[in-house]
Simulated scan of single mutants.
Amino acid sequence: MPDSLFPRGAGLGGPPVLTAGCPFSAVELQAMESDGVVRRILAQVYVPAAARATAQLRARALAQTLTPRVRERTVAGRMTAAWVLGCAPAPERPVMLVESTRRLARLGTGDRLLVHEVRFGDLDVVDIAGLRVTSGLRTAIDLALHSEERTALPVLRRLLDHPGLGLTPALVSAGLEAMPRQPHKERARRVLGCLGSPEGATPEGRPAGGPLERGPSC
């Protein structure tokens, strides 16, 4: 792929992340995708076809879909954070978390995002390529609490297998117990208790299935 295809400086900090109008139109990007020059990484965000998918690249791609105000005030969380970490499929509607002391109405997110009010601890948020994302531990706890069991288990297993996160079932369980007044806590305990069961089993003992459970492994 010739270097002249992308604007000068587009690759600073990593491979270029392209959206319609920066500098190619949506039609041009779709044609380039058909030709195998670029690939879609998230929504209408493209990267060079040969670019290695990393947490940094996914974070930069997600940041391209957010307004500066949303980037400043929210944190990528739940399945969206798991995607940034490489353990879940790309989200159709990114989940962004906002500290409960802030006002959601002022964010102006429209219907492109799912935004939830939460409380963060001191170690719950990390910076990845300039995007705030929930830590691996907080992400795992949130998935156990808020995601449907059959969807959460395969992603939780990938998070536990991720060599850079240092997670164990005991650590995630301890983090869950340290969070006070959480709804669905008993269900989350049940989900975490299944992490030692054979791959693909659900809390009810049924084989797991469905498109969300076939995402990329870490």
Rank of each mutant, 00 (worst) to 15 (best):
L85R: 15
A144T: 12
A152I: 03
R78S: 07
M179P: 00
V172L: 11
L114T: 10
A82K: 05
M79S: 04
A105F: 15
R103C: 02
L167C: 05
C87H: 11
P89Q: 13
V98M: 15
D161Q: 06
P94C: 10
E117W: 00
E177F: 04
H162I: 06
A170Q: 15
S173W: 10
D124E: 06
E186C: 09
Q182W: 10
V125D: 05
M96P: 03
L171Q: 09
G86D: 07
D122I: 07
D127F: 00
R181D: 15
L156P: 07
V133P: 05
P94W: 07
A105P: 08
L85C: 14
P89N: 12
R106V: 03
R181W: 13
A170D: 14
A76Y: 01
P169F: 08
E92K: 10
G121C: 07
L167S: 01
L107S: 00
A144H: 04
A178E: 01
H162W: 09
L171Y: 01
W83S: 09
I141R: 02
R93F: 08
A90R: 09
P163G: 05
L143Y: 04
L145S: 03
K185S: 15
V70F: 00
R181A: 15
L113V: 05
M79F: 02
E186S: 14
L143E: 09
G136W: 10
P94T: 02
P169Y: 03
R181P: 07
D142S: 12
V125W: 02
A178R: 01
D127V: 02
D161V: 00
R73W: 06
H146A: 13
P180K: 04
V115R: 00
A82C: 07
A105G: 15
T80R: 05
G175T: 13
R157I: 08
L114E: 13
P163E: 09
P91F: 08
L85P: 12
D124Q: 00
G164M: 03
P94D: 01
E186P: 01
A81G: 04
T101Q: 14
L145T: 01
R181L: 15
E177A: 14
D127G: 06
H116I: 00
S135D: 10
L160Q: 10
A152E: 03
F120R: 03
T109L: 05
